[in-house]
């Protein structure tokens, strides 16, 4: 009974705490000063048509590096907790249906292609490394559903993940040496605005993030289906 009242009390306090966000926050009429700087100078300085991408990759690049590190820590945690000491035979694996197998054979290359498109065009269209990486991981999930006995190569996964992480930090260090600061993307030529090869190092960095996020999520999936040793 006390428990019930305590829950109601806690929820009431949370409502009180969050209510000002609904009642007192007047909608903004124009961009905040920070956003004005990003939206006003961003396209000229960085050459990225997608302003969200220029914020994620360059202006707040350190935050993104931190987020990638958090993702890595979570993936390592999943691998640690789901580690199996002895290899257990998987209980009753049934073959996938012909429908799923045929559908996968048709859809898998398309999903992979869309994933790569999304992270290479992160500076032009909605999307980027995180979304592209998740798309690639979803393609792998579909493949593993259709081929129950298939296994993911840990070596390739670990090398992809480590190398993309190392190159990401190396690109940041190159920005420190050749441009204004760490993760500054202006050390590569800006190119023509709105084309694929433009915006300096932003597409390169975002592709590396895409590879890293994709391989990390595939690692998590592989651990969860008991592939870890």
């Amino acid at each position: 009974m006390i428990r019930k009242y305590a829950v109601i009390l806690i929820l009431g306090l949370f409502v009180l705490m969050l209510l000002p966000l609904l009642t007192e926050l007047t909608p903004f009429q124009e961009l905040s000063p920070v956003a004005q700087k990003y939206a006003g100078e961003g396209p000229d300085a960085l050459g990225s048509a997608n302003l969200v991408t220029s914020v994620v990759v360059t202006y707040r690049g350190m935050d993104t590096l931190g987020e990638v590190a958090v993702l890595f820590a979570a993936a390592a945690g999943v691998g640690f907790f789901l580690r199996r000491k002895e290899k257990r035979p998987a209980p009753g694996k049934r073959e996938a249906s012909a429908l799923l197998k045929t559908g996968t054979a048709f859809l898998l290359p398309l999903i992979l292609l869309v994933g790569v498109f999304v992270f290479t065009h992160g500076h032009l269209t909605p999307g980027g490394g995180f979304q592209g990486g998740v798309l690639i991981a979803s393609a792998v999930v579909l493949f593993l559903f259709a081929n129950r006995s298939a296994s993911v190569s840990r070596t390739i996964l670990q090398w992809t993940e480590s190398l993309s992480g190392v190159f990401y930090v190396a690109m940041g260090a190159l920005g420190l040496l050749l441009a204004a600061g760490f993760l500054d993307s202006r050390f590569l030529p800006p190119g023509e605005f709105g084309k694929l090869f433009s915006a300096g190092a932003i597409p390169v960095i975002y592709s590396l993030i895409g590879l890293k996020v994709g391989s990390e999520l595939v690692g998590i999936i592989d651990n969860m289906r008991g592939g870890a040793e």
Partner: peptide, 19 residues
């Protein structure tokens, strides 16, 4: 355009939430 900064924050927060 709308403010790009909250969009950028939510973009990464979704992936971190997944992990």
């Amino acid at each position: 355009v709308v403010d790009p900064v909250p969009s950028a924050l939510v973009l990464t927060a979704i992936v971190i939430g997944l992990a």
